[in-house]
């Protein structure tokens, strides 16, 4: 499978990364190189092989339904590049 300009545009949109000609050109080259490299996997017969998403073999720990000390609103908002007294502030969504 190869990636063309349109595909790169679509992926950058999905990834929320602003794209321009220069970016697209370099991405087409790099992504195709990487895809060609990973295409080696097609040599492997994986019929009936259970996919592995975690190597951990234990039961999922479940915590009790207890409210722990709340963080201060200030601590949560402190690092935001744009905030007011109570909220994170973001540019409006244009529909």
């Amino acid at each position: 499978m190869t990636i063309n300009k349109e595909a790169v545009k679509k992926i950058s949109k999905l990834s929320r990364i602003a794209s321009n000609d220069e970016f697209e050109t370099s991405m087409i080259k790099d992504l195709n190189t990487i895809l060609k490299f990973v295409d080696q996997l097609n040599e492997v017969d994986t019929k009936d092989i259970e996919p592995l998403s975690s190597v951990v073999e234990q039961k999922l720990f479940q915590r009790e339904d207890v409210v722990k000390k709340m963080n201060e609103k200030e601590e949560i908002l402190k690092n935001s590049p744009n905030k007011n007294e109570n909220y994170f502030v973001v540019p409006k969504v244009i529909e």
């Binding site: 709340m70 609103k73 949560i76």
Partner: peptide, 27 residues
């Protein structure tokens, strides 16, 4: 109807001050 959130220990109480029931996980 739980006391705490699904994946964090902050409260689910309705009608609290904005951003007052937010853990580091929730943010």
């Amino acid at each position: 109807t739980s006391n705490a959130k699904l994946f964090s220990s902050s409260s689910t109480k309705f009608g609290s001050n904005p951003n007052s029931q937010v853990s580091f996980v929730d943010a």
